[in-house]
């Protein structure tokens, strides 16, 4: 056990040479781990080690809520024996937090939750890491989108929408560009054979305002954030991008049901530091299988209108790679990245 750890330490230092801060952090973690190694070598996780949980965004955001929900469940059901220290390391759209975890290569006690930026930030900035570098634990849920029009619109169904858009190009609003909000309608339009102008907004409420003021023809958004307006009839849902329509949107078809499967969504999952020991990965996979069975988790999924999509271990790595490649292809074809 011990030689293996030493091994990992060397690789860490080599791969990070030149990146002084990262190395310093890595060394700081590697040294106590090496001293502690003989005593705990048999068992993961050790009750003496504090789990260092990185939240790559500020308090209150989607990533923060997910991380704290999982930690709460771990504590409530006594699933993790030691202490868990969760820290918000926000900055650079996740680059800072995940960079911090990346620098802990081989450490089984560094962990983090992912969100959309986990795929998009490396496409935009020179991050030293790529999503597939980390040790994958599980994809737990995906964020999917619903296409809506103004409640007073003449368009009642998605078929009418496609027909109208084929006649006269529509404009569709979404949040951000290097984002699933842009990718989903782009792929959907390709499959369904219509053209549209994408109008990007900074936030869901800005684009909702624009749609309600009749400046936009349609928009895509996370159903959770506009459910109230859908229920009150001010917005009309046409089609959903996920695999199963959530209960709140009953009767709305999915893109796949129409025969226009697009196969991308934002991954909400759990990762360990790169090259984390296999037993750590295995332990977390087993634990997460218990976490997703709890009523608290069901409640989290329901209140955030996420699509429960569970994939474990290496399959999650493949998923991340595919998502990244899909995004890269679409973004490159429209010139958003080079």
């Amino acid at each position: 056990m011990q030689p293996k750890r030493e091994d990992k330490m060397t690789t860490t230092n080599e791969s990070q040479s030149g990146w002084v801060r990262a190395t310093a952090i890595a060394a700081a973690f590697a040294v106590p781990a090496a001293f502690a190694a003989p005593a705990i070598a048999q068992e993961y996780p050790s009750a003496d080690e504090t789990l260092d949980w990185t939240i790559a965004f500020g308090p209150g955001g989607g990533n923060d809520i997910m991380a704290r929900t999982i930690i709460e469940i771990l504590n409530t059901y006594d699933l993790y024996p030691g202490d868990i220290s969760a820290e918000n390391r926000a900055g650079g759209s996740g680059a800072v937090g995940w960079g911090y975890l990346y620098a802990q290569s081989g450490n089984p006690y560094g962990i983090s939750t992912t969100s959309g930026s986990f795929v998009t930030t490396p496409l935009q900035a020179d991050t030293p890491w790529q999503p597939e570098d980390f040790t994958p634990v599980a994809l737990l849920a995906t964020d999917d989108l619903v296409l809506v029009v103004n409640g007073s619109s003449e368009i009642e169904t998605v078929e009418e929408f496609i027909a109208a858009a084929q006649e006269r190009p529509m404009n569709i609003g979404g949040t951000g560009t290097v984002n699933v909000d842009f990718i989903v309608p782009t792929l959907f339009a390709q499959r369904a054979g219509f053209e549209f102008d994408y109008v990007s907004f900074n936030s869901m409420s800005e684009q909702t305002t624009a749609l309600l003021s009749d400046a936009l023809d349609a928009m895509v958004g996370n159903p959770g954030e506009i459910l109230g307006l859908i229920e009150s009839g001010e917005l009309r849902p046409l089609v959903f991008s996920g695999q199963n329509t959530p209960a709140a949107l009953e009767g709305v078809p999915t893109m796949a049901e129409l025969g226009y499967d697009i196969g991308v969504s934002m991954p909400r999952g759990l990762i360990l530091a790169p090259d984390a020991p296999a037993e750590a990965q295995e332990w977390w996979i087993n634990t997460m299988q218990q976490v997703v069975e709890t009523p608290e988790w069901d409640e989290y999924i329901a209140s955030n209108t996420l699509t429960p999509t569970v994939i474990y271990g290496e399959d999650f790595r493949t998923f991340l790679e595919n998502t990244k490649n899909g995004f890269e292809e679409v973004l490159r074809s429209v010139g958003a990245i080079d």
């Binding site: 935009q124 900035a125 951000g176 560009t177 290097v178 842009f182 990007s200 900074n202 958003a336 990245i337």
Partner: peptide, 9 residues
């Protein structure tokens, strides 16, 4: 910062 429309930095 990232240009909202084109996604370029």
């Amino acid at each position: 910062g990232v240009d909202l429309e084109t996604g370029q930095g």
